[in-house]
Design a protein around this nucleic acid. Structure first.
Length: 752
RNA sequence: GACCGAUUAGCUCAGCUGGUAGAGCGCUACAUUGACAUUGUAGAGGUCACAGGUUCAAGUCCUGUAUCGGUCACCA
């Protein structure tokens, strides 16, 4: 502390002590979040009130009170808290604290996610760095042990950081996507879907990551703009273009649009001899609408094994397909003299050879395309045809018992129709509404979901093979059966999250009480990954929507609206903000000015501003206490018309704040509470009360004291969901007769 | 290419179903040992992207244009 500041603190302490010997000493200094937050959290946690069962037991909620439930979007177990998490926690905690204060049986379930692919690759990376060993050399069992240890180790980091934000979650119900109850749910779901024919195994074109040796789902792909030369090759009478000459060895089909007049002379199925990379081959003409006449020359050759689109063309016409590149990115014998080379090295040599053979017409060096990469930290995606497990989203089946609006038992449905109808009929409402259209759009373009992953960390697929036979069950069918080594896509288990955290497949009391959950709050970036998958799983497995409301928050950006990134150096760390300005200020700055679905600009000065507000509330409390502490507030008083007016304004504010929270307009609710407290209570009411409190009219003074106490306690309640720490810290210092509950955490939300 | 947004004060953004523009930060002036040196009071600053239309009345509804952004698909 700078000298002059210490001087002022000393000075004010002296004068204060003289003037107000009776108010709690803690108020004599500015509010210091660091001094209170951890203790308050411990107090709350130890009280047990985060658990709705305890609230019922202790009479804070009635046994038949309306339930309110949220499951936490589980952060990665190996991650650390970032501003996105902080925003999510702030929003959810506001909803939870508000509803708890309303007396609902309020449950917020915490958990962490294994983030299978990301975690395994992280640990593999560490091991390789330290021991120069790859996963095959370590072995499945040992690697899993190491990953588990790593996850267990870092688990507490994210949990403790979550607590720092003041999140009032029921830790007794903590769930991990790979723990035993969740394992049961995953097995049950897989086996049921397989029995119903919704899960199948088949050879399909999949996104293969040669670096991490696994498939990844469509959604996990990230397209990176890359400069890739575009080559025009002579292919018999045609000119074909490609950025990937290394896949072209086996191309023996030449495809053009059936309506393309330039190629009207060629007939579908016609065979042509062409000179190609490793000598002459017989090409077959295929007419297919997938060929875009506008693109290049309008003619292409196809490589079904290494391209999704080509695979589909090959399927349509029953064409042969051949593997050119192996799982590690090495060229196979079909590449002739290039066999055994890695594709990255081979490309240049292939081009050289084709140049010598005069097969190159031209090269466009400036071409830019988007290269598919694995967003989970892997490499460039190489499509391959592989035996994988899929969820069929278009297969019709007969609906079982259903509580989904617009879907009845016995209806013929598909997973797609279930996903659409849940939202269409408002079983699930998405906020902001515009995302409903985005959601439909996505579902209408949805392909079967590839759910198998060639990694070890995750739920191993309960399928067993022997002599070409397949059995789906959790335990070995007997001698000689080998379990599928693959694991399930992490979103498969995440899709079950609302149910599995509540005990499904057991018919638990939690499941009956809290499912469907009330709200799912998450970032709009995982609407498809996760939100859609939960709707799929829940509607199909239990005939219920997983949640009634979806609240999508935006991305936290810097003050200029730029994405926070390490390379830009504009990352604001929530823990640093908590340390500097307190959790309350951090929360408020993430909520006010952040409409659902909109990105949230954040700057340090904004957080700082709300720290000032916390201190303002602190000082308001000091003022009110100073002037009321020695008064018997139980005495009856007669309110002046101005007193009545002050209370009426307070009530209006309560009504407005409540209404905005109910509508999930937290940014408006927070702002209204803020403006009332600072602009009205502090600037107007307190100021005008000074002469009354100092005056001779005892009746007027006592009436105003009572009004001020009412304003203070109600304001603390209003603000509690937004700024739980400072409000509770003040509450704890209030004399007993001023409050209706020992803890503000479970005080009754004011009526309006 | 399809879809979804955005365009309002110097900056970042609110403004719900149409009724003479709001917040925070910043800026200016003044005040201040005051509950609050983390404060208060007052103030400057906007033809609400542009062009049409509906209406007694349009940031607000409709049509179009421009610019910016996002998502998805394609990229042979």
């Amino acid at each position: 502390m700078p000298f002059y500041k210490a001087f002022f603190v000393l000075l004010s302490n002296l004068s204060m002590n003289d003037k107000q010997p009776n108010i709690p000493e803690v108020f004599l200094k500015p509010y210091d979040p660091a001094q209170h937050e951890d203790d308050l959290y411990a107090m709350w946690e130890n009280s047990g009130f985060f658990n709705p069962d305890v609230c019922v037991e202790k009479g804070v909620a009635t046994p038949d009170a309306e339930p309110f439930s949220i499951v936490l979007p589980p952060p990665n177990v190996t991650g650390t808290l970032h501003m996105g998490h902080a925003a999510m926690l702030a929003i959810e905690d506001i909803l939870v604290r508000y509803n708890r204060m309303l007396g609902k049986r309020t449950l917020w379930i915490p958990g962490t996610d294994s983030a299978a692919l990301a975690t395994q690759s992280k640990v593999e990376g560490i091991i390789y760095k330290q021991e120069k060993k790859r996963r095959d050399e370590i072995g499945r069992e040992e690697l899993l042990k190491r990953i588990d240890a790593f996850a267990e180790d870092s688990k507490n980091t994210i949990i403790n950081q979550t607590k720092k934000m003041g999140a009032s979650m029921d830790w007794s119900r903590y769930a991990f996507t790979l723990d035993q109850p969740r394992y049961k749910a995953v097995m049950e779901a897989f086996i049921k879907m397989y029995a119903d024919g919704l899960i199948y195994r088949g050879a399909r074109s999949v996104n293969w990551d040669p670096a991490m040796q696994t498939t990844v789902s469509d959604d996990e792909m990230e397209y990176v703009e890359t400069n890739s030369p575009f080559y025009y090759f002579k292919y018999g009478p045609f000119t074909i273009g490609t950025v990937r000459p290394e896949t072209k060895f086996g191309d023996k089909y030449v495809v053009m649009h059936p309506e393309d007049k330039r190629y009207a002379q060629y007939e579908h199925g016609q065979q042509i001899e062409v000179e190609w990379i490793n000598g002459p081959i017989t090409a077959t003409v295929i007419k297919d609408e997938a060929a875009d006449p506008e693109m290049g020359t309008g003619v292409m050759t196809i490589t079904p094994w290494h391209s999704q689109v080509d695979f589909e063309i090959a399927e349509r016409h029953g064409l042969e397909r051949e593997q050119i590149i192996d799982e590690r990115g090495i060229l196979l014998p079909i590449a002739g003299e290039f066999a055994g080379q890695h594709i990255k090295k081979a490309r240049a040599e292939i081009i050289l050879k084709m140049q010598e053979k005069g097969l190159i017409e031209k090269i466009d060096e400036t071409n830019v395309n988007k290269v598919a990469t694995n967003s989970r930290g892997g490499g460039t995606i190489e499509p391959q045809i592989k035996e994988q497990w899929f969820i069929d989203v278009n297969k019709e089946f007969t609906m079982g018992p259903s509580e989904i609006p617009g879907v009845n038992q016995g209806d013929t449905v598909t997973l797609k129709t279930l996903m659409i109808k849940s939202v269409e009929n408002n079983g699930v409402s998405i906020l902001p509404e515009r995302f409903e259209r985005v959601y439909y759009n996505w579902i209408n373009n949805l392909h079967d979901w590839c759910i198998s992953r060639q990694i070890w960390y995750g739920h191993q697929i309960p399928a067993w093979f022997k002599d070409g036979e397949v059995k789906v069950q959790t335990t070995s069918p007997g001698e000689g059966w080998k379990q599928d080594p693959d694991t399930l896509d992490t979103w498969f288990s995440s899709g079950l999250w609302t149910m599995s955290t509540l005990g499904w497949p057991e018919q638990t009391k939690d499941l009956k009480t809290y499912h469907p959950t009330t709200v799912l709050e998450t970032g709009y970036d995982i609407l498809f990954f996760w939100v859609a998958r939960m709707i799929l799983m829940s509607t199909y497995l239990v005939g219920q929507v997983p949640f009634k409301n979806v609240y999508l928050h935006g991305l936290v950006r810097d003050e200029k609206g730029k994405k926070m990134s390490k390379s830009l150096g504009n990352v604001i760390d929530p823990l640093t903000m908590i340390e500097k300005f307190g959790a309350d200020a951090t929360r408020l700055s993430l909520v006010i000015g952040a409409a659902p679905g909109n990105d949230m600009p954040l700057s340090e000065s904004k957080v700082k501003g709300y720290k000032n507000f916390a201190n303002k509330v602190w000082n308001i409390s000091r003022f009110v206490l100073t002037h009321t502490i020695d008064t018997d507030t139980t005495l009856p008083v007669t309110l002046s018309s101005r007193d009545e007016e002050i209370l009426a304004t307070l009530k209006t504010t309560v009504a407005e704040v409540s209404a905005e929270i109910e509508k999930f307009n937290l940014y408006l609710a927070g702002e209204k509470a803020y403006h009332y407290i600072w602009g009205e209570l502090a600037d107007v009411v307190l100021e005008e009360s000074k002469p009354i409190l100092a005056g001779e009219d005892m009746a007027a003074k006592q009436a105003r004291q009572k009004v001020l106490i009412e304003c203070l306690t109600t304001s603390l309640k209003l603000l509690h969901p937004f700024m739980p720490y400072v409000t509770e810290a003040i509450w704890q210092e209030l004399p007993k007769e001023m409050k209706d509950s020992e803890m503000l955490l479970v005080a009754k939300w004011p009526s309006s």
